[in-house]
Design a protein around this nucleic acid. Structure first.
Lengths: 117, 117
DNA sequence: CGGCATCCGGAATGATACTG
DNA sequence: CAGTATCATTCCGGATGCCG
Protein backbone atom coordinates (compact mmCIF):
# COMPACT_ATOMS: atom_id res chain seq x y z
CA UNK A 1 0.00 0.00 0.00
CA UNK A 2 1.16 3.52 -0.70
CA UNK A 3 2.18 5.57 2.26
CA UNK A 4 2.17 8.91 0.57
CA UNK A 5 -1.27 10.34 0.05
CA UNK A 6 -0.67 12.50 -2.96
CA UNK A 7 -3.67 11.28 -4.94
CA UNK A 8 -6.07 11.86 -2.10
CA UNK A 9 -4.77 15.33 -1.42
CA UNK A 10 -4.95 16.17 -5.12
CA UNK A 11 -8.50 14.90 -5.37
CA UNK A 12 -9.53 17.16 -2.54
CA UNK A 13 -7.62 20.10 -3.94
CA UNK A 14 -9.37 19.71 -7.27
CA UNK A 15 -12.65 20.46 -5.55
CA UNK A 16 -11.37 23.18 -3.24
CA UNK A 17 -8.91 25.03 -5.46
CA UNK A 18 -9.82 28.62 -6.21
CA UNK A 19 -9.24 31.81 -4.33
CA UNK A 20 -12.71 31.98 -2.81
CA UNK A 21 -14.12 28.48 -2.47
CA UNK A 22 -13.10 27.86 1.09
CA UNK A 23 -14.12 31.35 2.05
CA UNK A 24 -17.52 30.77 0.52
CA UNK A 25 -17.81 27.46 2.28
CA UNK A 26 -16.84 28.95 5.61
CA UNK A 27 -19.88 31.20 5.27
CA UNK A 28 -22.45 28.84 3.88
CA UNK A 29 -21.48 26.12 6.32
CA UNK A 30 -22.89 28.27 9.07
CA UNK A 31 -26.19 29.11 7.40
CA UNK A 32 -29.06 27.00 6.22
CA UNK A 33 -29.34 29.02 3.04
CA UNK A 34 -27.63 32.03 1.57
CA UNK A 35 -28.56 34.31 -1.29
CA UNK A 36 -26.22 35.72 -3.91
CA UNK A 37 -26.38 39.17 -2.40
CA UNK A 38 -25.67 37.85 1.06
CA UNK A 39 -22.43 36.36 -0.16
CA UNK A 40 -21.50 39.70 -1.65
CA UNK A 41 -22.13 41.44 1.66
CA UNK A 42 -20.22 38.81 3.61
CA UNK A 43 -17.30 38.81 1.20
CA UNK A 44 -16.89 42.44 0.13
CA UNK A 45 -13.81 41.92 -2.04
CA UNK A 46 -15.27 39.27 -4.30
CA UNK A 47 -16.62 40.31 -7.69
CA UNK A 48 -19.89 39.05 -9.11
CA UNK A 49 -18.03 37.11 -11.73
CA UNK A 50 -15.82 35.31 -9.25
CA UNK A 51 -18.67 34.61 -6.88
CA UNK A 52 -20.74 33.25 -9.71
CA UNK A 53 -18.02 31.01 -11.11
CA UNK A 54 -16.93 29.66 -7.76
CA UNK A 55 -20.51 28.91 -6.80
CA UNK A 56 -21.00 27.09 -10.10
CA UNK A 57 -17.89 25.00 -9.51
CA UNK A 58 -19.04 24.05 -6.04
CA UNK A 59 -22.46 23.17 -7.37
CA UNK A 60 -20.90 21.07 -10.13
CA UNK A 61 -19.00 19.06 -7.55
CA UNK A 62 -22.14 18.52 -5.50
CA UNK A 63 -20.95 20.61 -2.57
CA UNK A 64 -23.73 23.17 -2.68
CA UNK A 65 -27.21 23.29 -4.14
CA UNK A 66 -28.90 26.13 -6.00
CA UNK A 67 -32.60 26.88 -5.90
CA UNK A 68 -34.23 29.50 -8.07
CA UNK A 69 -37.47 31.22 -7.11
CA UNK A 70 -39.35 32.42 -10.18
CA UNK A 71 -40.45 35.71 -8.79
CA UNK A 72 -39.65 39.36 -9.14
CA UNK A 73 -37.32 40.50 -7.88
CA UNK A 74 -35.32 37.38 -8.59
CA UNK A 75 -34.39 35.18 -5.68
CA UNK A 76 -31.81 32.40 -5.60
CA UNK A 77 -30.92 30.41 -2.55
CA UNK A 78 -27.75 28.44 -2.06
CA UNK A 79 -27.36 25.73 0.51
CA UNK A 80 -24.70 23.28 1.48
CA UNK A 81 -25.53 19.72 0.49
CA UNK A 82 -25.14 16.66 2.65
CA UNK A 83 -22.04 15.82 0.67
CA UNK A 84 -20.81 19.35 1.23
CA UNK A 85 -21.30 18.89 4.94
CA UNK A 86 -18.64 16.21 4.81
CA UNK A 87 -16.17 19.01 4.15
CA UNK A 88 -16.82 20.55 7.55
CA UNK A 89 -13.99 18.70 9.28
CA UNK A 90 -11.62 20.24 6.76
CA UNK A 91 -13.04 23.68 7.42
CA UNK A 92 -12.78 23.13 11.13
CA UNK A 93 -9.11 22.19 11.03
CA UNK A 94 -8.44 25.12 8.71
CA UNK A 95 -10.15 27.57 11.03
CA UNK A 96 -8.50 26.10 14.07
CA UNK A 97 -5.03 26.29 12.59
CA UNK A 98 -5.64 29.77 11.19
CA UNK A 99 -6.72 31.02 14.59
CA UNK A 100 -3.55 29.73 16.15
CA UNK A 101 -1.45 31.02 13.29
CA UNK A 102 -2.85 34.53 13.65
CA UNK A 103 -1.87 34.54 17.31
CA UNK A 104 1.54 33.20 16.42
CA UNK A 105 2.08 35.92 13.85
CA UNK A 106 0.95 38.73 16.13
CA UNK A 107 3.34 37.49 18.79
CA UNK A 108 6.13 37.59 16.22
CA UNK A 109 5.10 41.08 15.21
CA UNK A 110 5.67 42.52 18.67
CA UNK A 111 9.36 41.84 18.34
CA UNK A 112 9.44 43.97 15.19
CA UNK A 113 7.19 46.77 16.45
CA UNK A 114 9.59 46.99 19.38
CA UNK A 115 12.01 49.06 17.31
CA UNK A 116 9.46 51.83 16.74
CA UNK A 117 8.53 52.22 20.35
CA UNK B 1 -18.02 37.36 18.55
CA UNK B 2 -17.78 36.69 14.87
CA UNK B 3 -19.46 33.60 13.61
CA UNK B 4 -17.89 33.49 10.20
CA UNK B 5 -14.31 32.38 10.14
CA UNK B 6 -13.10 34.11 7.04
CA UNK B 7 -9.97 35.59 8.56
CA UNK B 8 -8.84 32.30 10.00
CA UNK B 9 -9.38 30.45 6.75
CA UNK B 10 -7.55 33.15 4.83
CA UNK B 11 -4.63 33.06 7.25
CA UNK B 12 -4.28 29.34 6.71
CA UNK B 13 -4.66 29.68 2.98
CA UNK B 14 -1.89 32.24 2.86
CA UNK B 15 0.49 29.58 4.10
CA UNK B 16 -0.87 26.69 2.10
CA UNK B 17 -1.76 28.30 -1.21
CA UNK B 18 0.24 27.07 -4.16
CA UNK B 19 -0.15 24.16 -6.48
CA UNK B 20 2.33 21.91 -4.70
CA UNK B 21 2.59 22.93 -1.07
CA UNK B 22 0.14 20.42 0.31
CA UNK B 23 1.54 17.74 -1.95
CA UNK B 24 5.01 18.48 -0.64
CA UNK B 25 3.73 18.43 2.91
CA UNK B 26 1.97 15.14 2.39
CA UNK B 27 5.36 13.65 1.56
CA UNK B 28 7.58 15.30 4.12
CA UNK B 29 5.08 14.70 6.89
CA UNK B 30 5.81 11.00 6.56
CA UNK B 31 9.59 11.26 6.57
CA UNK B 32 12.07 12.56 9.08
CA UNK B 33 14.08 14.28 6.37
CA UNK B 34 13.88 14.59 2.61
CA UNK B 35 16.41 15.76 0.06
CA UNK B 36 15.70 17.92 -2.93
CA UNK B 37 16.14 14.99 -5.29
CA UNK B 38 13.83 12.81 -3.26
CA UNK B 39 11.05 15.32 -3.70
CA UNK B 40 11.64 15.27 -7.42
CA UNK B 41 11.37 11.51 -7.51
CA UNK B 42 8.27 11.48 -5.36
CA UNK B 43 6.60 14.26 -7.34
CA UNK B 44 7.59 13.59 -10.95
CA UNK B 45 5.53 16.42 -12.45
CA UNK B 46 7.05 19.24 -10.43
CA UNK B 47 9.84 21.35 -11.92
CA UNK B 48 12.97 22.35 -10.06
CA UNK B 49 11.79 25.93 -10.03
CA UNK B 50 8.44 25.13 -8.51
CA UNK B 51 9.88 22.74 -5.98
CA UNK B 52 12.46 25.30 -4.98
CA UNK B 53 10.01 28.16 -4.65
CA UNK B 54 7.40 26.20 -2.77
CA UNK B 55 10.02 24.88 -0.38
CA UNK B 56 11.25 28.40 0.22
CA UNK B 57 7.73 29.61 0.97
CA UNK B 58 7.19 26.81 3.42
CA UNK B 59 10.52 27.53 5.07
CA UNK B 60 9.65 31.22 5.28
CA UNK B 61 6.47 30.41 7.14
CA UNK B 62 8.32 28.14 9.52
CA UNK B 63 6.67 24.96 8.30
CA UNK B 64 9.83 23.22 7.20
CA UNK B 65 13.51 23.57 7.95
CA UNK B 66 16.44 23.48 5.57
CA UNK B 67 19.86 22.15 6.40
CA UNK B 68 22.80 22.44 4.03
CA UNK B 69 25.76 20.08 4.20
CA UNK B 70 28.89 21.73 2.85
CA UNK B 71 30.17 18.81 0.90
CA UNK B 72 30.48 17.69 -2.67
CA UNK B 73 28.22 16.66 -4.13
CA UNK B 74 25.93 19.13 -2.42
CA UNK B 75 23.46 17.79 0.08
CA UNK B 76 20.43 19.57 1.46
CA UNK B 77 17.98 18.07 3.88
CA UNK B 78 14.48 19.32 4.48
CA UNK B 79 12.47 18.43 7.53
CA UNK B 80 9.10 19.36 8.90
CA UNK B 81 9.29 21.65 11.91
CA UNK B 82 7.33 21.30 15.09
CA UNK B 83 5.14 24.13 13.90
CA UNK B 84 4.72 22.32 10.61
CA UNK B 85 3.60 19.25 12.49
CA UNK B 86 0.63 21.24 13.66
CA UNK B 87 -0.61 21.13 10.07
CA UNK B 88 -0.98 17.37 10.19
CA UNK B 89 -4.63 17.46 11.25
CA UNK B 90 -5.34 19.48 8.12
CA UNK B 91 -3.49 16.97 5.98
CA UNK B 92 -5.33 14.14 7.65
CA UNK B 93 -8.75 15.59 6.96
CA UNK B 94 -7.71 16.36 3.39
CA UNK B 95 -6.51 12.84 2.79
CA UNK B 96 -9.54 11.36 4.45
CA UNK B 97 -11.97 13.38 2.40
CA UNK B 98 -10.00 12.80 -0.80
CA UNK B 99 -10.10 9.06 -0.27
CA UNK B 100 -13.83 9.13 0.13
CA UNK B 101 -14.24 11.49 -2.79
CA UNK B 102 -12.26 9.20 -5.10
CA UNK B 103 -14.57 6.33 -4.23
CA UNK B 104 -17.57 8.56 -4.72
CA UNK B 105 -16.37 9.62 -8.15
CA UNK B 106 -15.57 6.10 -9.31
CA UNK B 107 -19.04 5.02 -8.26
CA UNK B 108 -20.48 7.86 -10.33
CA UNK B 109 -18.32 6.83 -13.27
CA UNK B 110 -19.84 3.37 -13.52
CA UNK B 111 -23.16 4.89 -14.46
CA UNK B 112 -21.49 6.63 -17.39
CA UNK B 113 -19.32 3.70 -18.49
CA UNK B 114 -22.54 1.72 -18.59
CA UNK B 115 -23.39 3.16 -21.98
CA UNK B 116 -20.26 1.70 -23.60
CA UNK B 117 -20.84 -1.84 -22.34
C1' DC C 1 23.40 17.81 -6.51
C1' DG C 2 20.66 21.66 -5.54
C1' DG C 3 19.13 25.84 -7.06
C1' DC C 4 18.68 30.62 -9.25
C1' DA C 5 17.81 33.90 -13.49
C1' DT C 6 15.36 34.73 -17.46
C1' DC C 7 11.89 34.44 -20.61
C1' DC C 8 7.26 33.17 -21.76
C1' DG C 9 2.32 31.30 -22.17
C1' DG C 10 -1.92 30.44 -20.25
C1' DA C 11 -4.95 30.25 -16.58
C1' DA C 12 -6.96 32.75 -12.86
C1' DT C 13 -8.75 36.92 -11.37
C1' DG C 14 -10.56 41.60 -11.81
C1' DA C 15 -13.36 45.93 -13.74
C1' DT C 16 -17.06 47.36 -16.13
C1' DA C 17 -21.20 47.31 -18.72
C1' DC C 18 -25.27 44.96 -19.93
C1' DT C 19 -29.54 41.75 -19.29
C1' DG C 20 -33.97 39.09 -17.80
C1' DC D 1 -31.79 40.64 -7.67
C1' DA D 2 -28.78 37.60 -9.79
C1' DG D 3 -26.31 36.94 -12.85
C1' DT D 4 -23.55 36.99 -18.06
C1' DA D 5 -20.34 39.10 -21.66
C1' DT D 6 -16.37 41.32 -22.70
C1' DC D 7 -12.02 43.14 -22.11
C1' DA D 8 -7.84 43.95 -19.29
C1' DT D 9 -4.47 42.42 -16.03
C1' DT D 10 -2.05 39.83 -12.90
C1' DC D 11 0.25 36.03 -11.58
C1' DC D 12 1.31 31.24 -11.38
C1' DG D 13 3.89 27.97 -13.16
C1' DG D 14 6.67 25.74 -17.08
C1' DA D 15 11.08 25.48 -20.23
C1' DT D 16 15.59 26.27 -20.53
C1' DG D 17 20.20 27.48 -19.40
C1' DC D 18 23.77 28.69 -16.09
C1' DC D 19 26.25 28.28 -11.61
C1' DG D 20 28.79 26.71 -7.20
Amino acid sequence: MSLNCQDEVEATLEVLVGKWKLIILSHIALNKTMRFGEFQKSIPDITKKMLSSQLRDLEYHGIISRKVYNQMPLKVEYAITEYGESLKPILDTLVHWGKNHIEYMSSQEKKVVDSSG
